[in-house]
Design a protein around this nucleic acid. Sequence first.
RNA 1: GCCAGGGUAGCUCAGUGGUAGAGCAGAGGACUCAUAAGCCUUUGGUCGGGAGUUCAAAUCUCCCCCUUGGCACCA
Length: 510
Amino acid sequence: MSKQFLITTAIDYANGSPHIGHAYEKILTDVIARHKRLSGVPVKFITGLDEHGQKVQMSAEKKGVEPIEICDSLAGEFQSLCQRLNITNDDYIRTTEPRHKKVVQSVLQQLFDEGQIYKADYNGFYSIRQEQFVTEKERENGAWPQIYGEVIEVTETNYFFKLSQYQDWLIDFIKSNESIIYPRFRSADVLNFLKEPLNDLCISRPKERLSWGIELPFDSGFVTYVWFDALVNYITASGYGSDAFEANWPADYHVIGKDILSPPHAVYWPIMLKALGLEMPKHFLVHGWWLSSGSKMSKSDGHVVNPLDLIDTYGSDAFRYFVIREMNVGQDSEFSLDLFQSRYNSDLANDLGNLVSRLLNMGHRFADGTVPSSTIKEAEELTVLAHWSELKEHIFDLYDNFQFHKALEQIFAFVAELNRYTELRAPWKLAKSELDEDKQRLATTLAYMSEGLRLSAVVLSPVMPDIAAKVLNLLGSSSIDSYEGQLEWGNSLAGGTFGEKIILFPKNEA
RNA sequence: GCCAGGGUAGCUCAGUGGUAGAGCAGAGGACUCAUAAGCCUUUGGUCGGGAGUUCAAAUCUCCCCCUUGGCACCA
C-alpha cells in the first residue's frame, strides 16, 4: 500500500456546540482534501471529538447525567454539522472509542516501560471551588482572586512525561524544518516558547479528582490527562498498531487554529512522537480566527444571527464559498451578515448564477436546447481563451499554497470575463440576424459561455462541490472525480442538452 | 512587560523601493438574453502618527499609538 495523503483537523472539545470556527476548520480541510483527490492523490481525512476531561465531567454532574450522554449528544451535533457542510472525512474518531483507549494505553505503557514516564510529587495551590491548580502568577497582592474561593496548598502524586530532555532536539528540528509550520511566522511563537526551559509534562490526574478519562495501564488510581488522550487521536485514527498505519502515517497536514499551535501541537506532540519513535508530521497548517464584532448584526431588530444558520438559508456551498473567499489562511478574518450577503449576491447570484440563467435561457431559445459547437475564433474569443489560459496556469499553484481567497478571486474574475464576452457578442442581437456569419457567431458564443462555465465549475469543485456538479449537469455533462482531462478548452460539450432553467442562488428577501 | 500578526478608498482586502489598486457600496450612461441581473464610465485615500535612510518610501530603519494572538499543570 502506498502512502496516502493524510490530513486532519483538530478534534473538537465536547464542552459546547459547534460554532463558525469549527465549521471553518472543517471546510478548509475538506477543500484541501477534495483538491488532492481531484489531483489524483489518495487521501485520508480525519476529524473527530475530544471527550474526556474536567469540563465534561463537571457539566455532566451539573446536569445530573453520565458524561457519555453529553458526549453522544455533542458527537451527534458535530457530525451533523459535517453532513450539512458536505465534509468528506474518511473517519470520525471519538476519544471514548475502544480503539482509542487501546492505543492510548499502549503508548503510555511503552513509555512507562522505557522509563520515559515517571511518578513524582507535585506541590501546588489548589482551588477547591474551581477544582484546579492555580499558580503563583495568578495571585494578586498576595491574595487569590475571589473566583477561586478557598485555595489550599497540597501535595499530589502524579505521573510525568520526560518532555524536557527533548527540548534541544525540538528546537533543532523546527529550525531545520522551516516549512513545517504554515504560515512561517508562527514558528517564532514556538521558538520563543522554547527559549524557556521546558518542564516535564504532567500527564495524569488522580481518579478522586477526575474519573472521566482513560485509566493509566500501570496504575489504576489515575487517568491520563489531555495530551496523551486528545493528541493521540491522530495515530489512533491512522491505524496505529495495524498494517494500515504504514500507509497513513505521518500526517501530511495537521490543520489547527492558532491557539493550539504552541505548546500542544508544536511542542508536546512532536516530542511525544519522537519518544515513541514515530515520524514527525510534515506540516502544521495554522489558521486564524473569525472575528465577529458583527455577530449581533441585524441592526433593525437586534437579533443575534448564528452564522451556522446561513448554511440552511443559503446552502452549504454558499457558506463554504464565503469562508474560503474571505479568509486569508493564517490571518484573522471579519465575519458579518452584511459581508456574507454581499458575497452571496454579487459573486454567487449576480455573476455566476445569473450567467448560468442567461445561458440556459438563450440555449433553449436560440439553439433548441442543444449545446452548439464553436466554429469561429475572432478577437472576442481569443480574449476569453487567453484569460482561461492565464487562470489555468496559476490556479493550482494558488490552491497548493493555501491562497484560496486569491484563487476564488481569480476564478470569479474569469466568470466576469464570460459576462463581458456575452455583452460584447450580444447573442440576443445575433439571433435576429439571417446572415450565416452571425449564426456562426451565435453558436460560438453559446458554446464559449458553456465551455467557460464548465471550466469554472471544474476549478470550483473543491470549494463548491454541489454547485459544480449542478452546473456541469445543466451543461449536459456530468460531475467529475478528477481534474485529469478536464482543464483543456475544447468542444466536449457540443451536442449535449441544456438543463431546464434554474436559479442556482436565489436571493432571499430579508 | 516580552514576542509575533494586522493597521491602505465608506466596507472587506491586494500591493515589500520607482507616478496609489481590486471587489462591494455610491454616481452617470447605453443595452435588454438574464435572479431590477450583466456591461461601459466615474466619485472616493496626506497608505495609523512622528522622525530618519534614499534621487525616490505604503514598501527599509527607529520611536510611539491602536488592534489580535502567544508567552498558563487553559482546553
